[in-house]
């Protein structure tokens, strides 16, 4: 099973786990990553800067195709039996689940690696943008150099720059 979903609704990790494994007894390992909305901002978290809400904007169409391309790349690198990616959009609150990446395959090494690979590329390539609402107003979240560095570790041919 390979499935990519962009949705407003929450997801149930237990149900996703059953779907990820299915009846495939060749699966010996499943690695799952769940990202949540943090209630504190990334930088210089002052108490007054608590994140009250987060709005997720995306580019419909390109979002799905870019994640699918990342999953396809992962499937070329590792013998994956099953992959599921869910990313939520719209308004979310601290503690809410925001992203799910589930990978199932024969052994744990490739499961861990493929799961991290998909997350690293999702963070730097999939067209999503986060806007935080704090007591002092709303602001767009800045991209982090550390995310680019994490993606670069995998040594994929680099994407063209904007201009």
């Amino acid at each position: 099973m390979v499935e990519v979903s962009i949705q407003q609704e929450d997801f149930d990790v237990g149900q996703l786990q059953r779907e990820l494994l299915g009846q495939d007894t060749s699966i010996g390992a499943a690695a799952v990553f769940v990202g949540c909305v943090r209630g504190v901002p990334d930088k210089e978290a002052a108490a007054s800067d608590a994140v009250l809400a987060m709005e997720l904007e995306h580019y419909p169409g390109m979002t799905e195709s870019s994640i699918q391309a990342i999953v396809d790349e992962a499937r070329q690198r590792w013998a994956l039996r099953s992959v599921r990616v869910i990313h939520r959009i719209g308004e979310l609150r601290p503690g809410d689940q925001i992203v799910y990446v589930g990978v199932a395959c024969g052994h744990r090494g490739e499961a861990f690696e493929a799961c991290e690979f998909i997350m690293d590329y999702l963070k730097t390539r999939a067209p999503f943008w986060k806007k935080e609402t704090t007591p002092s107003g709303a602001r767009w979240v800045d991209a982090r150099d550390s995310d680019d560095a994490a993606a670069a570790r995998w040594d994929l041919a680099s994407e063209p720059a904007g201009d």
Binding site: R125, F128, W140
Partner: peptide, 25 residues
């Protein structure tokens, strides 16, 4: 819907998007 560079040619019917660095996940 494919990331492009400045020298990418444009033709009628194309969809072009400009956007800041992405921050999903």
């Amino acid at each position: 819907q494919q990331q492009a560079r400045g020298d990418e040619p444009l033709t009628a019917g194309d969809e072009v998007a400009f956007y800041p660095p992405v921050t999903g996940g």
